[in-house]
Design a protein around this nucleic acid. Structure first.
Length: 200
DNA sequence: CCCTGATTCGC
DNA sequence: GCGAATCAGG
């Protein structure tokens, strides 16, 4: 079954994407593969993010070599070096915790009330053998400002198990620029390196 | 080898 | 429309 990209799901995708999380990261939190994330992101039209590669131009030689072609005099050589959310974005000081069972699970309790004040969240967080997320610890980005793209008019924090009849979204009024309400935003933006397969 | 995202193509 | 497979760069 193809992933059901609901408005809420898309809102989450957009939010996390905009936060600068990697596709794999978003995928984990959304319980999809990075491919799904990047694929959907493309179709959604978002995706102005730093690309590590530039994929060789396919040899699809235009059958009809229209003379009125090549309007681009090759201004910039390649990718834009000025990507604000590039490196820093690789590991936001706060990463949305996987919204597993906010009500059931007592959360991680590590939730920091203050969003991203510390440049070095790592160090002490190296207790448990993190399955992954190595580089994810280094950077500490800036507090994302400029809230644009209204998410939805309702908090899209998932409650219950996705796919089950009881599953629903919070529905409360979200914070400006966020897909979650104030309460769930606190749960969502937990410190770092937590979550993974907590969604189960 | 790990990571990253991009594109292609069968479904 | 979806996403695995594949590609490509760091």
């Amino acid at each position: 079954m193809a992933m059901e990209w609901t408005e809420e799901t898309i809102a989450r995708l957009r939010d996390l994407w905009q936060q600068g999380l990697s596709t794999a990261e978003i995928g984990r939190q959304l319980s999809v593969t990075k491919n799904a994330v990047v694929g959907k992101a493309h179709r959604l039209g978002l995706k102005p993010r730093p690309s590590p590669i530039r994929r060789a131009a396919k040899a699809a030689s235009a059958p009809a070599a229209t003379t009125a072609e090549a309007p681009a005099p090759t201004p910039a050589v390649e990718n834009t070096p000025a990507t604000p959310a590039a490196e820093a974005a690789a590991a936001p000081a706060v990463t949305p915790a996987a919204p597993q069972a906010p009500q059931k699970a007592p959360a991680k309790a590590q939730a920091t009330p203050t969003p991203a004040p510390q440049p070095k969240p790592a160090a002490a967080a190296e207790t448990a053998p993190a399955p992954r997320a190595t580089r994810a610890t280094k950077a500490a980005l800036r507090p994302v400002s400029e809230p644009r793209r209204r998410s939805s008019q309702s908090c899209c924090w998932p409650l219950g198990d996705p796919g089950t009849p009881g599953f629903h979204f919070c529905g409360a009024t979200p914070l400006p620029g966020k897909p979650y309400c104030a309460e769930h935003a606190q749960l969502a933006y937990v410190k770092l390196r937590d979550r993974r397969d907590n969604v189960a």
